[in-house]
Amino acid sequence: MQLMGSVDQAVHAGRGLRAWEDPQTGQVDAGWPEVAYESLRAINHLAGQGYAVPAPVLYDVLGNLKGA
């Protein structure tokens, strides 16, 4: 089995392992690690401000991150 390039360039569901900048528009699309980091950071930030994050919502977000 021969691989078709570097894992750095591999894409899954429209995202890669690294952020990617469109050379034509200059728009940066976050990679999977950045998306996971921002999701966890948002949960922590909201909980730290006193918002109650319902367990089903939290488990859904964490479950989606685990499956990503």
Rank of each mutant, 00 (worst) to 15 (best):
M1C: 08
Q2A: 08
Q2M: 07
Q2V: 04
Q2R: 15
L3Y: 03
L3R: 11
S6N: 15
S6G: 06
V7C: 01
D8G: 09
D8Q: 15
A10V: 07
V11Y: 13
V11H: 14
V11P: 04
V11C: 02
V11E: 14
H12T: 15
H12F: 05
G14D: 07
G14S: 07
G14Q: 08
G16T: 04
L17P: 00
L17R: 12
R18K: 14
R18F: 05
R18I: 00
A19Q: 10
A19P: 05
A19V: 01
W20V: 02
W20A: 12
W20T: 08
E21P: 00
E21N: 11
P23H: 08
P23D: 06
T25S: 13
T25K: 04
Q27G: 00
Q27F: 00
V28W: 12
A30R: 14
A30F: 05
W32I: 06
W32F: 10
W32Y: 14
E34W: 03
V35G: 00
V35K: 01
V35R: 05
Y37H: 10
S39D: 04
L40P: 02
R41E: 10
R41M: 07
A42L: 02
A42K: 12
A42R: 13
A42Q: 10
A42G: 06
N44E: 15
N44Q: 15
A47V: 07
A47F: 00
A47I: 13
A47Y: 02
Q49A: 13
G50S: 03
G50T: 06
Y51E: 11
Y51H: 12
A52P: 00
A52V: 14
A52Y: 14
A52I: 12
P54C: 02
P56G: 02
P56H: 08
V57K: 01
V57H: 01
V57A: 11
L58H: 13
L58V: 06
Y59M: 07
V61R: 06
N64F: 02
K66A: 11
G67N: 11
G67H: 11
A68T: 11
A68E: 09
